[in-house]
C-alpha cells in the first residue's frame, strides 16, 4: 500500500497551512472528545447519586409509576448511548486526520472526514430533538 498519493493538475493540495489547521483541528477535537466524555461520566455519577431526588422531583410534576420510571431511565440510557457514539465519531475523526497528516495518506484523511460527517449527522439529530423539545415547551 502506497502512503503517498500521486497528485494531478485537477487535484487540490492541502498546503502547509491547511495541514497545520487540520493538525490543530485534530488536537482540539481529541481534547473536546475527552472533555465531553468526562462530562458524560460526571452526569452519570450525578444521576446515580441524585436518582432519588430526581425521581421525587419528577413525581411531584407528573405521576410516575414503575413503568414510567423505567421509560425515563430508558430514555436517559438511549441519550447517553447516542452521546457516546457522537464522541467516538469525533475521536475517530481526530485520530484519522492526524494519521493521514503524519503518513501523508489521503485514504486516512478521507476516513477522518467520513467520521466528521457522522459527527455532524448525529449533531443534526440532537439539534432536531432540541428544536422539537423547545417547540413542545413553547406550545
Amino acid at each position: 500500500m502506497e502512503p503517498n498519493q500521486s497528485s494531478s493538475l485537477f487535484e487540490m493540495q492541502a498546503d502547509g497551512l491547511a495541514q497545520s489547521r487540520l493538525n490543530s483541528i485534530s488536537k482540539w477535537s481529541k481534547f473536546i472528545a475527552i472533555v465531553v466524555l468526562i462530562m458524560v461520566i460526571i452526569t452519570a455519577i450525578f444521576l446515580f447519586v441524585a436518582k432519588d431526588q430526581i425521581i421525587e422531583a419528577f413525581s411531584s410534576m407528573v405521576a410516575l409509576d414503575n413503568r414510567a420510571t423505567g421509560v425515563l431511565i430508558g430514555i436517559i440510557v438511549v441519550v447517553m448511548g447516542l452521546v457516546i457514539i457522537w464522541i467516538v465519531a469525533l475521536f475517530r475523526a481526530a485520530t484519522f486526520i492526524k494519521q493521514g497528516l503524519l503518513s501523508k495518506n489521503s485514504d486516512r484523511l478521507a476516513e477522518g472526514f467520513k467520521a466528521m460527517r457522522i459527527f455532524f449527522v448525529i449533531s443534526v439529530v440532537f439539534s432536531v430533538l432540541s428544536i422539537l423539545s423547545a417547540l413542545t415547551s413553547m406550545f
Partner: peptide, 27 residues
C-alpha cells in the same frame, strides 16, 4: 497555536476526499 507548515509538500485532496469533505460540509 502552531501555524508553522508541517511539510514543504502538500497533501493531495483526491476525489474521494473531496466527496467526503463536500458531504461533511453540506451536513
Amino acid at each position: 497555536e502552531n501555524e508553522q507548515p508541517l511539510s514543504l509538500f502538500g497533501l493531495s485532496i483526491d476525489e474521494e476526499n473531496k466527496g467526503t469533505l463536500r458531504s461533511a460540509s453540506q451536513w
